[in-house]
Amino acid sequence: MAPRIGQMSRFNITALALGMAFLYLPIVILVIYSFNDSRLVTVWGGWSLRWYHEFFNDRAMLDAAWMSLRVAALSATIATLLGTLAAVGLVRGERFRGRALFSGMLYAPLVMPEVISGLSLLLLFVALNAERGFWTVTIAHTTLTMCFVTVVVQSRLASIDRSLEEAAMDLGCDPVQAFLRVTLPLIVPSIVAGWMLAFTLSLDDVVIASFTTGPGSATLPIRIYSEVRLGVKPGINAISTMVIALISVVIVIASLASKLSGSQGKSAAPL
């Protein structure tokens, strides 16, 4: 009897269950311990919100969090604009000079080690004599995240029936109108998902931000990173839990957006 889809062996079920436990248990443990009253990270001292109180009284941490949120919102917005344009150019532009270079430049950062991207951008900023801080980090994050936006929007755009636009043009729209009135509304969910992804990626980055920021303008991950290097602190559990909560909200919105767009198709990229 051949195994069919939906018919699972004990081995399949065990592999899935262990895999999911491996992926989620560490995060669950972290969240639980963020409500631990004890100063010792490993001793359970009862439920408490003291580490959350501590965060909201930590000026430096709050500044870093605010900086990160601003960088993430702005860079995600610019990245979504540029990434969507890039996707339109790649999917609809047919052949143009330098297309291979263009798609190469957009795909490489997806897997490029961050130390290289960070170092190279810093050397550019130094050569341009740019003051390092909010703007340089924002530009760096835009460059990285627009590539992710491009991939997300591109896969959706490629799945849309061109004859819809052709019909709109037969009915008197010019190509730009046809795109704006017919295609754009169809790809909006993927654009929203792209923005969300860009936002979370920016909120997560330590390496590129460390290279491209200046003194006095640390992002939240940079601060968390320097604290973690010194050892485990219960306060970090609380901050981490809040970041996870924020990202969860973002994911829910993004998945609702892709639900609205109907079947997103199975993409090989983890997006």
Binding site: L82, G83, L85, A86, V88, G89, L90, V91, R92, G93, E94, F96, G98, F102, M105, L106, T142, T143, M146, T150, E165, P175, V176, A178, F179
Partner: peptide
């Protein structure tokens, strides 16, 4: 359609 779509690539191209 290919013409205006091509122009869409200009800004991201220059950025990259």
């Amino acid at each position: 359609f290919a013409q205006p779509a091509r122009y869409a690539a200009i800004a991201p191209y220059l950025w990259m």
